[in-house]
Structure formats: structure tokens, C-alpha cells
């Protein structure tokens, strides 16, 4: 097990199978967020922070589009099974303990967004030798960089005073989504020879 993607080829590129698996996971997660945001975003924005969600919808779409084009794809017969597992995991789960069902659903979407943007750090998988000229390498760096901005809308909403009365339920929802995303991400990485938990560092 390694902590990083590789071994890189002589041009500093990530092996195509690793590219395929990592890109598939990220497309699934960010694609799910884009779909959920497109449904959840109100036609008429009611709060200032919702402008961030509008931007996020298009950023998520951009991430999917970027990965589609930047990845060196390889046929991978395990993908249908993995994709089903991931897609099932991203399905909305209204947060328990919140009576307003629309709010409960919005909290879950935000919790998933917090986990996808916070717990997944694709650029941290790159070894120092990874080529800065390779589109997949640049795409991973860009996605991680954008994630630190995109997570702000979730942080703003999930920490807001409006949710203070249901803070325990919100925290539990975010913890649950983080646990879920981390587990799936770790399983994916183990499948391509990467282990990133504390004991391996």
C-alpha cells in the first residue's frame, strides 16, 4: 500500500486505471450534488447565502465535465457495481429530528456537500513528481482547490443561527455523511493500492 497515486509513468502521469477509478468516484459524488442542488435550489432565492448554492450547482457540473475530459479512461468492469454502491449512498436521507421535511432534506444535501468537499482531498493523493502539465493532475488540484471554497456555503448554512435549535441533529447528519464518504473513498483507494489513514503516515 502506498499513500499516493502511482507509480507514475515517465511523463509524470497517473496510471489510467487509477485515473478511471478516482474520476468515476468524483463524478458520481459531484454529479449527485449537482442533481440534488438543481432540485433543491429555489427558483427565487430567499437568503443571501443561497447565491453560493447557485454558484455551487454550476461548479459541481464543471467538475463533472472537467473530469470527463481530463481523465485517461480505461475499461473497468468493476465500475457498474461500484457506481451502484456510490449512487445508492448519495440518495437523499432526510435528517431525523427535524420536523420540516424540506429543511430536513436541505440539511442532508448540505451535509453530503460538506463531506464531499471536506473529506475528499484528491490533490493530496498526488506524489510530488506528478506532472503539472498533465490534465488529470491539474484537474485533481483544481477540484481540491475549488472544494475549499465550495464547502463555505455548507458551513455557512449548517452553522447558521437558524439551525441552532436542531444543532445536534445537524451535527449527527454531517458526521454520518462524513463517515459514509470517508468509508467509500477509503475503499476505492484501497482498491488501487492506496492507504491514507493515520497509521499509514
Amino acid at each position: 500500500m502506498s499513500q499516493f497515486l502511482g507509480p507514475l509513468d515517465s511523463a509524470g502521469r497517473v496510471p489510467p486505471l487509477q485515473q478511471t477509478r478516482v474520476a468515476s468516484f468524483l463524478i458520481s459524488a459531484h454529479g449527485a450534488l449537482a442533481r440534488q442542488l438543481s432540485v433543491a435550489l429555489p427558483g427565487q432565492l430567499k437568503a443571501g447565502w443561497q447565491t453560493e448554492l447557485n454558484a455551487q450547482l454550476y461548479r459541481e457540473t464543471e467538475i463533472v465535465s472537467l473530469l470527463m475530459r481530463a481523465t485517461s479512461w480505461l475499461p473497468d468492469f468493476t465500475l457498474p457495481y461500484h457506481a451502484l454502491t456510490w449512487e445508492a449512498a448519495w440518495l437523499p436521507k432526510p435528517v431525523g429530528g427535524v420536523t420540516d421535511q424540506k429543511l430536513a432534506m436541505t440539511i442532508d444535501i448540505a451535509a453530503l456537500g460538506h463531506a464531499v468537499h471536506g473529506a475528499i482531498r484528491p490533490a493530496a493523493l498526488l506524489p510530488v513528481e506528478a506532472s503539472a502539465a498533465d490534465p488529470f493532475v491539474v484537474a485533481l488540484r483544481r477540484i481540491e482547490f475549488e472544494s475549499s471554497r465550495l464547502i463555505q456555503a455548507q458551513i455557512h448554512f449548517l452553522k447558521s443561527e437558524d439551525l441552532k435549535p436542531v444543532r445536534d441533529a445537524v451535527s449527527a447528519a454531517v458526521e454520518g455523511r462524513h463517515r459514509q464518504v470517508r468509508k467509500l473513498w477509503a475503499e476505492l483507494l484501497e482498491g488501487i493500492g492506496i492507504r491514507r489513514d493515520a497509521d499509514s503516515e
Partner: peptide
Amino acid sequence: LDAVKRQGWLINDVYALQNLME
């Protein structure tokens, strides 16, 4: 400098640092 920064960058997560600051 990138090498100096790398371990701190690898080991710290933005949202966690933000929580510490907040």
C-alpha cells in the same frame, strides 16, 4: 518552499483549520 509546506498541507484539512480558527 513547496517541500517545506507539503507535510503541513497534507495533514491539515481546510474545514478543520477553519473550525479551529472559528
